[in-house]
């Protein structure tokens, strides 16, 4: 899967963005299959906005976004669900877990939405790796942010995808846990030959990025 941006400008940030150069906003940019892309940006310049636009959660922008060759404004209903089940996975900055479900149920839900990519033992294996195996049967709402973030990472990795969108995915993790989580993400993306886009505030070397872009 390839994502193309044609002169995309979020309407709320329009005035602010015209005053500074960007590799993404108001220009042509193609995120090619298999690319590992880091997007660095200070607060308030639209990292979350970009992630949401790429995932088709908001429409208040000028220009066009294409999934492969299709304008995402035309992808709706069943076709949109199909994309999100098979080609696009996401880790939200605000995590977005179901608080009333247990950690395991949150992960299971995304695993069984489509024909499962992994068996359920893979969930345990990943949870073991990230050190959250002991809270799997706890309600997600009762977990700490650090635990919730790791659950959200595992949830994103149990489904099939060609493109992984990550919005500050390690914001609640310490260095050691970040390294372990990044290694798991790298492993899963390599297995799938998948591309990813990671947005963050600062430079980092968690991954072997193909490109680093400024927002």
């Amino acid at each position: 899967m390839q994502i193309t941006l044609h002169n995309v400008v979020p309407i709320p940030l329009k005035d602010k963005l015209q005053q500074r150069p960007s590799d993404i906003w108001n220009t042509q940019q193609t995120l090619k299959p298999g690319e590992w892309i880091k997007i660095k940006a200070p607060s308030g310049t639209g990292k979350t906005t970009l992630t949401h636009i790429l995932y088709k959660l908001r429409f208040d922008y000028l220009g066009n976004v294409l999934w492969n060759d299709q304008d995402i404004r035309t992808v709706t209903g069943g076709a949109l669900a199909e994309k999100r089940q098979q080609q696009l996975s996401i880790i939200f900055q605000d995590l977005r877990l179901f608080n009333n479900l247990t950690a395991r149920e949150n992960i299971e839900l995304n695993r069984v939405l489509q024909q499962p990519h992994y068996e359920t033992n893979m969930v345990d294996a990943m949870a073991e790796k990230l050190g959250v195996a002991h809270i799997l049967n706890q309600r997600a709402g009762l977990c700490s942010y650090g635990e919730q973030q790791r659950i959200a990472i595992i949830r994103a990795l149990v489904q099939p995808f060609e493109f992984l969108l990550m919005d500050e995915p390690f914001s609640h993790l310490d260095k050691a846990n970040t390294a372990i989580a990044a290694a798991l993400i790298a492993e899963e993306c390599t297995k799938r030959k998948a591309a990813f886009v990671l947005t963050d505030l600062d430079d980092d070397d968690h991954f072997n990025y193909t490109r680093k872009l400024n927002l």
């Binding site: 959660l57 069943g78 669900a81 999100r84 089940q85 977005r96 839900l109």
Partner: peptide
């Protein structure tokens, strides 16, 4: 809210 998040995660309206 739950339905919205389900659709965000990729649940098809048909499901």
């Amino acid at each position: 809210e739950e339905i919205q998040l389900l659709i965000t995660l990729g649940a098809a309206p048909k499901q």
